[in-house]
Design a protein around this nucleic acid. Sequence first.
DNA 1: GATCCAGTCTGAATCGATACAGAGGGGCGT
DNA 2: ACGCCCCTCTGTATCGATTCAGACTGGATC
Lengths: 354, 354
Amino acid sequence: MKPTLQAVADAVGVSRSTVSNAYSRPDQLSSALRERILAAARQLGYPGPNPTARSLRRGFVGSIGVLFTSQLSYAFTDPFAVRFLAGVGAATERHGTSMLLVPLPRAQTDARRAVENAAVDGFCVYCVADEEWALDVIRARGLPYVSTAVPEDAAADKRFVGIDERAAARSVAAHVAGLGHRRVALLVDSVLPDAPAGPVTLAGFEHARHPTTRGRLAGFADAFAEVGVAWSELTLLNAPGNSGHAASAAVAGLFDRPEPPTAVLAGSDVLALGVLDALARRPNGTHPPVSVTGFDDVPEAAAAGLTTVRQPAQEKGRIAAELLLDPPTDAAAGHVLLPTELVVRASTGPHVRS
Amino acid sequence: MKPTLQAVADAVGVSRSTVSNAYSRPDQLSSALRERILAAARQLGYPGPNPTARSLRRGFVGSIGVLFTSQLSYAFTDPFAVRFLAGVGAATERHGTSMLLVPLPRAQTDARRAVENAAVDGFCVYCVADEEWALDVIRARGLPYVSTAVPEDAAADKRFVGIDERAAARSVAAHVAGLGHRRVALLVDSVLPDAPAGPVTLAGFEHARHPTTRGRLAGFADAFAEVGVAWSELTLLNAPGNSGHAASAAVAGLFDRPEPPTAVLAGSDVLALGVLDALARRPNGTHPPVSVTGFDDVPEAAAAGLTTVRQPAQEKGRIAAELLLDPPTDAAAGHVLLPTELVVRASTGPHVRS
DNA sequence: GATCCAGTCTGAATCGATACAGAGGGGCGT
DNA sequence: ACGCCCCTCTGTATCGATTCAGACTGGATC
């Protein structure tokens, strides 16, 4: 049997409260007695107050949860997610808090249960997918949370940190449109649930599954509408799972069609890099060369010469955690919109008539 | 006031136990009553049993801790650590467990407290530094743990997953020695506490601070001893913090010396990449070219053409977590030694007389 | 008709601590 | 000598659930 606080109290001959104070409120007892208590604890092998019991009584846990919709193991393969986590980590360690990574099982019921059972004081919701059900649970638990998606209804009680997805996407699409490209493909993660990799048809961007995707597609569409290219003229490609592999699969055969796109706008750098990879693998390349753009500007993008939109990944994580750990008193300060920047590199070039 | 289990019980007119059973042991009551209870809970906004209270009573938490000696934010910049985490994540998500990342403050007392207060059922100890104090706390708490360092005393109760550091290091050093290099520098993280970046003197590898470093230095030394190069003839370089930046700083000025080393053996890929970077920055390069080796074989190493020793990072994490989550009944199975493999790439070449 | 049993539900004990009001004693001002 | 306050320490209530032995009910068995 592991020793409890009571055991230490008995050993020293004081009350439980006093032993508790020795650990948590040293100013409440004489330092002589405190030393005596700690010595006895050491001698008994008492490892300090049980964290769970302490949390129950105190009403807080000392850790915040990070929620990913995608599998936890995928999150670590996405450089953007990793940098986001680094930001959260930096904030928590400054604050003396731990971070709990909560994997969400595929099954809805189990996933729900996972959020209900997480012992945390709040959540950073980093989701690409539809997260409403998770937010419902979090709200029911009365826990604070920060979302990384700009809420479409902008409910005043929501704290979030994010970017203007639509404007950012528009900037990179405008760059490509400005280069003269008119036959373009848009490649995004999981446009529709369970659709295989490859072309899909969607009546409009607003039918995309995830809010973030919707925003980016909207921005892409905006820029091309401006140069007279309608939504229906754009090729929409689905990549199930945000991976280079899915991207390669999605563009398979695309450039062997009669009138192939001359540019591919990807919804993330990881996807764009997958496209570059697929292009590099083609024995004879493509004529004319295909322009490719990404989104996020992960470290790998620079090395690959990928044109993309930069958003501050680590900042995003850091701010998300900080909004949670010391909430701004001013309600408006809870809504943080980060800057984005178009980064032009070698992966885009002027449209060339084939 | 958030509703408690008791509130739901009162609302339905049953006992607390029955409500508890509705959530945790559905077979203990009629499904009609269960539905009635869940409906009432929904209506009251009861989010299910409080995780902390449940943990206290049940005696387990449903999450495992991952302990890094280095700062949590650094961990995410180290590709090897990230892949390790990915492995842990994969195992936990299969098991329906969460992972708690515990940042360790610089101050010893606070760090100790952090380990004492972590609400977890066990620990994966991923440390590069001296971790004995942490293991002491974990043992005192009676929690199981898996270490990634092969324990020097191989106490039977320890579970670990790791590699034969010495043999692995020896293999890459033998490769370099076989290429004819005799004036070599060994570059490792934090050989001595608080030493600045750059050359340090050490009576022998056994005086290095961290066990992992000791093992690798030992392997390097072994290979060179075999070709008649004594420990004292090797240049030892300290890089405080396992970062490319520290590595660059450590080799600053090194190649402008009268008789510069013709090879640098780094204790990690991150350090080796930093050296390559520093070399690339030299306006006139080096004559003869310097051979550089790393350790780990992170994804970036392949792109950089770095000769290194591969160890299965993700596997290491996965196995560590699995050893924790379903402990092998056979004690011997708790000791897992992973294979390593010398990967020769372009960063090493034959010694050339200058 | 007595016995047994499976299926439901209850009540008290318990997990391991913290909070808070208050008791007791010693020093200090007047 | 008295009152007051401060410093220590104690005792009890409480955090929100789970556990487990047992009570009750209705029907099947012999």
